[in-house]
Each structure stands twice: as structure tokens, then as C-alpha cells.
Simulated scan of single mutants.
Amino acid sequence: VILGGAALTRAYVEQDLHEIYEGEVRYARDAFEGLRLMDALIAVKRGVPGAALPELKQRRVPKRETAVLDVEEPQDGARSDVSVTNPVPTPPFWGSRVVKGIQLKEYAPWLDEGALFKGQWGLKEPQLIDTEARPRLRHWLGRLQTGRLLEAAVVHGYFPCVSKGDDLIILDEDGSERTRFTFPRQQRGRRLCLADFFRPEESGETDVVGLQVVTVGSRIGGETAQLFEANAYRDYLELHGLSVQLAEALAEYWHARVRTELGIATAEPAALDGMFRTEYQGCRYSLGYPACPDLEDRAKIAELLRPERIGVVLSEEFQLHPEQSTDAIVLHHPEAGYFNAGRRRA
């Protein structure tokens, strides 16, 4: 079993999971490391002299018996010190809207080349960027356009809301509760929770939250599947990695449009690197990450946005299909940023 992804670490996979799994389990930082592991595994099975799987990662710090964040919730229910006096913007509309036919030239400038070249394609050496990476990128972008493999679309919306404790409550037009999200709270430090970035229910004010689902469509997934079936693994990995990053680029592009629509795009960074470092007001949180880890909440976003209108559906495991799609909760609060939050014990 080869595992990877943002929620896992090498030590957790190769120590904790290795201890409880009867077979072999290894961590792969990216698809290219996964291929190297498979090459090593096949060599071992074929009896190639000297072939062996990599050594398991050993912890530098001894494992704690109890996780640092696995503590009881304080009884006082204290929230963080996030301001509740910031202006609440007025959205251009309430509810959701669909936008289709977004051209590649609109969101391609938002492509994170560092994440693509180093993370997805495994090109770590700087000298390979100009000689190999960018020519390959131009090749694939041209192929995507000539083959009409992209179907970029967005469904997004603005919804009235208030907060109560750790909950974000989405309101209906008459002020009644429509649905709610419950987010984890930090157990130390500022004790941040996503709900804190919205007006508390007792304030008597109504806030606004943005939601979005974006996709580059299913055609590109079909193309990558054909490459895989043809054993064109290098092309498969390059196109698959690019498709994932193009979905992220589309999400970044649309988030910028949301900031403009909310009137909070007055101090945008001049360079793209600043955008990737979130040097702007507000923040976009995708489901499954530390501040909003529960993938089940995707069902609530799907109910509010109805992303099937752009061809995006949820699996039974709450995964988005096509794979080249992302969802997000969009906050306007000037203090909003990325942070880790631990789950409470059941």
C-alpha cells in the first residue's frame, strides 16, 4: 500500500500505520516517488540482485501516547479574539449562479508553476525549469486548447449567515436556519475557529459567506485515462498534474473575482507569489484541510450550490467528480488566514 496526500506524514505512515498493517505500507510524497517505489517493488519480486525497498522512516522525536491536540474542551467555551466590528460587505446577489465557458486565457495566468513543476512533475533542479518544464507546459497547454479538452465552469454564491459557538449557521431568506457547519477550534493559542470570522448570532447582525465549486471538466480526465491505458505514464503524470493545478488556478482566479464583487480587493498584491501567499483580504478554505476537515460538509455545499449544473457530483465517500474540481468556503474577514485546528474527542 502506498499512501500520500496533505493529511499524512512519512513518519505517521511508515511508523504508526506500518505497526498495525500486516502487509507493506510506504509513504510517497508525489506520484514520481510512487513510481520509484513500484520500480523497487517489482525489482524485489523479480529477484534482481541488490534490489530492496527503501528503509522505513524513523521518528526523530518519540511518539507521544496522547496527541497534543487531543485534549478536553475548556468548560468556559471561550472564543478567540477575532474582531466582530469589521464591516460586512454587501454581495452583488443572494443565492447561487452558474458560469460556463471560461476561457483558458482567463485563469492560466493563475497557474502555480512551482507547485506544478516541483510538486506534480518532480522537477526539483532549477536548470530544468527553462530547458524542460516550460517547453512541456507550452506543449500541454496547446494540446488542451486544440483538443478542446477543457470545460471550465463555476457555480458560486453568497448566503446570509451568523455564528454560534463553533457553528456557522446559513440562513434562509426569512432568517430561519437553512443548514449549519460545525468547525474544530484550536485548543491553545488564539483558539481560532472558522465560525469566529462571522458575526455572532447575539449581535443581531447578519453576515455573508461565499461558497464556490469549480471544475475544468471531465474531458481531460478521459484523456489522462487513455494515456494511462496506453502505458504512456510520463505523459499521464504530466497531464494529470497539470489538470489538477489548472483546477486550482481556476479556483484562485474565481476567488479574486469574489473579492472584487464583495468590494474587498482594494489592496491586492502586485505579484502572483503574493496571491499564493494570500496577501489579500479574506481567505478560501477547501474542505478536508485543518480548519474545515469534515468532507461530509461537501454534501451541505452541494445542497446549497447544486454543482451538478456544471457536471460535478459527489461520490459516496464525499469526493468530487470529476477529480479536477475543487470546492471552498470563502471568508471576507480581514483576519482570516490558514491555521491548524484539532478535533475534539468524542
Rank of each mutant, 00 (worst) to 15 (best):
residue 131 T to Q: 00
residue 263 G to E: 01
residue 176 S to P: 07
residue 89 P to G: 09
residue 239 L to D: 09
residue 86 N to T: 14
residue 268 E to R: 05
residue 245 Q to H: 06
residue 281 Q to H: 12
residue 254 W to R: 03
residue 136 R to N: 05
residue 315 S to A: 13
residue 48 V to Y: 13
residue 177 E to R: 12
residue 68 V to H: 13
residue 222 G to C: 07
residue 204 G to V: 05
residue 11 A to C: 12
residue 322 P to L: 08
residue 18 H to S: 15
residue 202 E to V: 11
residue 261 E to W: 01
residue 144 L to M: 09
residue 319 Q to H: 14
residue 324 Q to I: 13
residue 95 G to Q: 07
residue 299 A to E: 12
residue 88 V to S: 11
residue 132 E to M: 00
residue 53 L to Q: 06
residue 149 L to P: 01
residue 121 W to Q: 03
residue 164 K to F: 13
residue 157 G to R: 02
residue 149 L to K: 03
residue 215 T to I: 07
residue 282 G to Y: 01
residue 252 E to M: 01
residue 260 T to A: 10
residue 315 S to Q: 09
residue 106 E to Y: 04
residue 342 G to W: 12
residue 281 Q to T: 07
residue 36 R to S: 15
residue 202 E to R: 10
residue 327 D to I: 01
residue 111 L to T: 10
residue 113 E to H: 05
residue 35 L to N: 11
residue 269 P to C: 00
residue 304 L to K: 06
residue 20 I to M: 03
residue 292 C to S: 04
residue 183 F to A: 00
residue 275 M to E: 13
residue 224 T to W: 05
residue 46 R to H: 15
residue 26 R to I: 14
residue 259 R to H: 04
residue 232 A to S: 13
residue 339 F to D: 04
residue 76 D to T: 11
residue 39 D to V: 11
residue 189 G to A: 10
residue 232 A to R: 15
residue 330 V to D: 09
residue 305 L to W: 09
residue 171 L to H: 03
residue 306 R to S: 12
residue 107 Y to F: 10
residue 85 T to W: 05
residue 170 I to V: 11
residue 32 F to W: 14
residue 319 Q to V: 14
residue 236 Y to P: 02
residue 320 L to G: 07
residue 228 F to T: 11
residue 31 A to R: 07
residue 100 K to V: 09
residue 60 R to F: 15
residue 195 A to T: 06
residue 82 V to M: 04
